[in-house]
Computed example of a mutant assay.
Amino acid sequence: MPHDAHAATTPRQPPNVSKALRAGIALAVLATIAGISVRAYDYHRVVKWTDAQVLPSVQVIAPDVGGAAEGMTLPGHLDAWISAPIHARVGGYLKSWDHDIGSQVTANQTLATIDTPELDQQFEQAKANLARAKANARLAALTDKRWKNLLASNSVSRQEADEKAGEAEAAQANVQAAQADMDRIAALEAFKHVTAPFAGTVTARHTDIGDLISANDSGPALFTVSDTSRMRLYVDVPQGYAGAIKPGMSVQLDVPDHPGEQFTGHLIGNAGAVNQASGTVLAQFEVDNTKNALMPGAYAEVHLPTGNGSHVITVPATVLLFRAQGPQVAVLGAGNKAELRKVHIALDLGDHLQIDQGLKPGDRIIDHPPDSLMQGDQVMVATAASSAKKG
């Protein structure tokens, strides 16, 4: 076959096909490399995010040192300066009562009268016994005098005269005994009138006309009389602030029934011992009540000055952890590791706590610690931006 014919039958490829093929391969390789790079970048981001999620993210706050400098408010209760339950000393039936609750009475003023028929009969018998003893004593004295005259004339023996003298002395002793018995019953007769032991207010009456009255202290008191011209204010002060209770100190108090009005109390003394159940020291104050504005048993909010409070640290209540060891606070330590410290709450103010043991100024305290946080756990401190984002 001729050469020209063979050349004519072979198809000729366009010169740009090989170049396009090479360009496509190059683009595919570049796309593959870019995809691998993106996947590697995403993988590293996922790994970094996963590692970050393993470490708990926490917020750190600084404590407020000396938060108790301005004082604190504590609950207290008021009692009468003197309060006496009045019981009956004699038995019988209540004949009448003269003063009800709220009445102002003076010392020795009659509150009620008890009808005592049995005691009255005993008193009459005692008077009769005294009269008989006196009659016997007079007769014995006359007999003794006659026998002494007979002894002077030797008409009787000395023994007989001495016996008569002894009988006269015994009769006189019987008079004294009868007199004492009558005086005892007369004193009981005086208790038929139930009287106030001091000037004050009748704050309770637990009897009425016709009630059977028993002469013992096991039953309820007939009346209660209270001296409310002054009041005693009792306040349980936390042990951490016991040093603030100093002689001459004064406190301000509010009562719910006099809103906007404050009263002043002056320290009388304190128990000098810590109540183990509450961890507090009982302090007692005197409050003037000449206007009768305060009532016994009333609740009061007491504003207690506590000095500089430099040993007290105030933190939000959200930092507290409750564990079997007691209340704890998580502090950020070296290497961002959590340190769990046992703390003592001096005063619970609701949304804030005053801590007097377990924390120091400058501690970095973890706020809202996770419940699973343990001693030595690694944590990550959240930045302000991330914290705001979470909120």
Rank of each mutant, 00 (worst) to 15 (best):
L212P: 06
A170C: 00
I245K: 00
T195E: 13
F198A: 09
L233A: 05
G210T: 09
V156R: 00
H206W: 00
G219W: 03
N154L: 09
V225W: 09
P220L: 12
S226P: 01
T224P: 04
D162L: 08
R232N: 10
D227Y: 03
G210I: 09
A171L: 02
A165C: 00
A187L: 13
P238M: 06
A221Q: 10
Y234G: 08
A171I: 01
L233W: 02
R230H: 07
S218H: 13
H206Y: 03
G260A: 10
A170H: 04
L253R: 02
E160G: 00
E189G: 11
I185G: 05
T201K: 08
P238E: 06
A221W: 01
A173I: 09
P259L: 10
V156M: 04
R230C: 02
G240D: 14
E160Y: 00
Y241S: 07
A165D: 09
E167P: 00
M231V: 03
A244E: 05
Q172G: 02
G219M: 04
A242D: 10
A196M: 07
N216W: 04
P220A: 14
V235W: 01
Y241P: 01
V235H: 02
A171N: 02
I213H: 08
E169W: 01
L233F: 04
F223L: 08
A180K: 13
P259G: 07
A180P: 07
